[in-house]
C-alpha cells in the first residue's frame, strides 16, 4: 500500500508556499500528498497511521518562486485570492490552495473563473470570507484613548486580518499614534504619527499602560452610548435583524454593547 505523504508547514503564506514547493517537486504524485498547516488547533490532531509526516520549514526563496509562478502562470488575481485564502482560519486551507494551484498551473488565467469547479470555489469562498471579515472590522473595531494619548484597539478576528486592515487605519488616522492588537494570535500593528505602520508578534504584550484611559475617554464613550441608544426607532425594534447584521462575536470590544449598560445589551432570548 502507498503511504500518504503529509507535508506539515507553518501557518503563514511563506510556510504554505514552501510546503507547496516541496510537495510539487517531490515525486510522490499529487494524489498521495496532503498539505497540512500547523495551527493552534492542529497541534494535537490525530496522527494517521500509514502516513508519513514531512516537516517543512518556512523558506523565503521557495516561497518567492511559488508566488512568481502563480502570477506568471495563472494571474495576479489568482495570486491575491491565494494570499487572502492563506490568512483564513480554515484548517484545510493548505491543501485547498495546493489543489487550486495544480489546476491553475494547467489551465492558466481562466482558472479563477471556473466557479463551478470545487477546487476553485473553495479558494473563492476562503477569499470572500477573509475579505468580508476584514471589511467588518473596518467598521466594528473600536479605539480607546489612553492617558498617553495612544489609541488602542483589541480585536479577536477568526481570520488573520490584522495586516489587511492596517493600511486603512494608517491612512485614515495618519496623525495619530495607535496600536491594534489581535488577542487571538498575539500580534499587533503599531502606528506612530506620520509614519508607516509596522507589524509585530507580541507574545508578552503588556497592555496595562494602554488600558489607563485618558480623562475624556469615559465621557466620549458615554456620549456614544447615548447616541447609539436614542437613534434606534422604538416602533421598528428588531433584535434578530440586529444580531444578523452584527453577530455577537464582534461585540466584546464595542462600548455600545458593554454590559454595564442595560439599554444597549442585546436581547439574548431573540424576541
Amino acid at each position: 500500500m502507498i503511504t500518504k505523504k503529509i507535508f506539515m508547514c507553518e501557518d503563514s503564506i511563506e510556510g504554505i508556499f514552501a510546503a507547496i514547493y516541496d510537495a510539487g517537486s517531490s515525486r510522490y504524485g499529487h494524489d498521495n500528498i496532503r498539505i497540512q498547516v500547523q495551527t493552534a488547533g492542529t497541534e494535537n490532531f490525530d496522527m494517521e497511521l500509514f502516513s508519513e509526516y514531512i516537516y517543512v520549514a518556512g523558506d523565503e526563496e521557495k516561497a518567492l518562486k511559488v508566488s512568481k509562478a502563480i502570477r506568471e502562470k495563472i494571474s495576479g488575481e489568482a495570486y491575491e485570492m491565494v494570499c487572502h485564502a492563506a490568512l483564513s482560519d480554515e484548517g484545510k486551507k493548505g491543501d485547498m490552495i495546493y489543489r487550486f494551484l495544480i489546476l491553475g498551473f494547467s489551465l492558466g488565467p481562466k482558472a479563477v473563473n471556473l466557479l463551478n469547479n470545487d477546487k476553485v470555489l473553495n479558494i473563492f469562498n476562503l477569499n470572500r470570507n477573509v475579505m468580508n471579515e476584514s471589511h467588518h472590522f473596518l467598521g466594528f473595531l473600536r479605539f480607546t484613548e489612553s492617558k498617553d494619548n495612544i489609541l488602542f484597539a483589541k480585536i479577536k478576528p477568526r481570520n488573520d486580518i490584522l495586516r489587511l486592515i492596517a493600511p486603512h487605519f494608517s491612512d485614515r488616522l495618519n496623525m495619530e499614534n495607535f496600536i491594534i492588537f489581535d488577542e487571538r494570535r498575539k500580534t499587533a500593528v503599531f502606528h506612530k504619527s506620520g509614519f508607516f505602520w509596522i507589524y509585530v508578534t507580541a507574545d508578552d504584550f503588556n497592555m496595562d499602560k494602554l488600558l489607563e484611559l485618558s480623562d475624556q475617554e469615559e465621557e466620549f464613550q458615554s456620549l456614544w452610548k447615548t447616541f447609539f441608544n436614542t437613534i434606534a426607532i422604538e416602533e421598528r425594534k428588531n433584535y434578530r435583524l440586529q444580531r444578523n447584521n452584527l453577530p455577537l462575536r464582534f461585540r466584546s470590544n464595542m462600548p455600545e454593547f458593554s454590559s454595564n449598560d442595560i439599554n444597549s445589551s442585546d436581547d439574548i432570548s431573540g424576541k
Binding site: L138, R172, L173, M175, R236, K237, N238, Q242, N244
Partner: peptide, 21 residues
C-alpha cells in the same frame, strides 16, 4: 488631516432596530 472615505461605505454598528449606523 484626519480621515478618508471608502467608496462602498462602512457600517460601524447596528442599532436595536437592526439599521446600520
Amino acid at each position: 488631516g484626519m480621515g478618508n472615505s471608502v467608496g462602498c461605505g462602512i457600517c460601524h454598528t447596528f442599532s436595536a432596530d437592526g439599521r446600520c449606523i
